[in-house]
Simulated assay, not measured.
Amino acid sequence: MTSELLDRALVEEATKKSGLVWVRGAGAPAARALWHVWHEGAACLVGDGPGEQPLPGLADGAEAEVTVRSKDKGGRLVSWTARVVELAPDSEGWAAAVAELKGKRLNAPDGEAMTARWARECRVLRLEPTGATLPLPEGSLAEAPVPTPATTRQAIPAGLPRLLVKKKRKRT
Rank of each mutant, 00 (worst) to 15 (best):
W35V: 04
N107C: 06
E86K: 08
A97C: 10
W22C: 09
A144M: 06
A59N: 11
W22V: 05
V85D: 15
Q154W: 06
P147E: 11
E13W: 03
W22E: 12
L125Y: 06
I156Y: 13
A144I: 00
R24K: 15
G57I: 01
S91F: 06
L127A: 11
L87S: 03
V146N: 10
A42Y: 04
A113T: 06
A82T: 04
G75Y: 09
R69S: 13
P135F: 09
K166T: 05
V21H: 03
T67A: 12
E12A: 14
G61R: 13
A108R: 07
L164S: 00
M1H: 14
A116K: 14
T115K: 12
W35Y: 13
A43S: 15
L55M: 11
V85W: 00
T130E: 05
W38N: 03
A99V: 02
E52P: 00
R8Y: 00
P149A: 05
R105I: 09
G74V: 05
G51L: 06
L125F: 06
S18N: 09
R105F: 03
V68Y: 08
G57W: 08
L6F: 07
M114D: 08
L163R: 14
E4F: 06
M1C: 13
P147K: 07
V98D: 04
A82S: 13
S3W: 04
L134R: 15
A116D: 15
N107L: 12
P56C: 02
R120I: 01
E92N: 03
E92Q: 15
V84W: 06
E40S: 12
K170A: 14
S18R: 08
G25H: 05
P54L: 15
R69T: 13
E12S: 12
A33M: 06
L10F: 03
